[in-house]
Design a protein around this nucleic acid. Sequence first.
DNA 1: GTCTATAGAGGGATAGAC
DNA 2: GTCTATCCCTCTATAGAC
Lengths: 218, 218
Amino acid sequence: MAMTTDSIFYQDMDGKPIESPNKIKIMDISIELFSRKGFTGVSIRDITKEVGIKESSLYNHFRSKEELLSTIFFNFRRSISRILPQEDHLGGMLQSVSPELFLKQSLAGLMKHIDDPVMAKVWRMMYLEQYRDRVVRDIYLNDIVGNMLKSLEKVFSIWIAAGRIQPADARILAAEYQYPLFAMIGVYVLLRVDGSSTWDIETGMREHVDYFVSKIIV
Amino acid sequence: MAMTTDSIFYQDMDGKPIESPNKIKIMDISIELFSRKGFTGVSIRDITKEVGIKESSLYNHFRSKEELLSTIFFNFRRSISRILPQEDHLGGMLQSVSPELFLKQSLAGLMKHIDDPVMAKVWRMMYLEQYRDRVVRDIYLNDIVGNMLKSLEKVFSIWIAAGRIQPADARILAAEYQYPLFAMIGVYVLLRVDGSSTWDIETGMREHVDYFVSKIIV
DNA sequence: GTCTATAGAGGGATAGAC
DNA sequence: GTCTATCCCTCTATAGAC
């Protein structure tokens, strides 16, 4: 996967790039604060104070606090869609690498997304707001959990059909592979709130991939 | 496991049972509201309005909004500690039942806890507040994730030593078994926010136990 | 696009009568 | 233990000058 810093470029919800320095600063600081205190725990005052503008100036960039939140998740969704394997490229990719390597590379791609200084915070926001906000809940359940399981199921079916792994229910394999990672990612982003060491949980993720692979190879 | 309705009995943080009907009502309604809108998203006014008392009356029961929150999590912690396998009873229990049955019964015990009408909401609160509140973070990371993994590791070591399952790293087995369940529980409580069907994810949990057992038996 | 000023509602918490 | 009344602060958002 090519190096990219795309993820720090924001767009408005109509697709226009956000270029105003103050608007970018509002996004950055809102993400930082929302991810630590939650949407309802952060006031417009908190945000504008750190940005260095008056409250009223924020409303030149966003119509409301809600629109600011929606813009953040709009960009998260856009960013997430890029780390899912592209259906049409699957065929070629799956032939050229081993299951083990493919899974390790996917995990690396996911971790790269979560490790992005901005996206790490939005992941936290997602876990934090999903109980309060139906849109966020749908992003998690559909865009993240649903899509990842579906695309993994496809991958495992292909491997099974090609006899590269043991015959099994591809849907169950996808769940067995992915759900532990979801839980571990949750722990990972939680540990990073306090700046605690994430060494154990990262090791756990690698051990999981190894264990899983050891149980499915022919 | 014997039927019990213990979980709906609250204690104050000094250990005294909460008996005042209004105080119980405050607890119930706070849990309901906090679990849907988050601590900072709910006001004392919201709570007392539903309880049917004036704001000032709440302060006869709790010194502050924070103390109310702490009391809720104090009771959650107490309740959680009861679903962990007791170290001293492990020996006997492990000899009398098969690994498969033991794991299925543990899962049933956990699901029973989460299905309790009150505790389901506090689980949601825990997922919701853990990013904002260090104490809640510690409850999740230590009392729940940490303790469950530790006690499961013990169980697997015993089985391995007794030759009842294939030799393996007990710590990894514990992680492989438990992490998917954590993620699935997260999805489960999330689905219940909207009253969506949890049939798929419950099936997923059972399939996980089956798959896991199939990979470890001798 | 930023500012000052302010509106108008809602926040947590307390005093003191009953 | 509940009430009325109130304090003082913070909240989101808008109007209008520059």
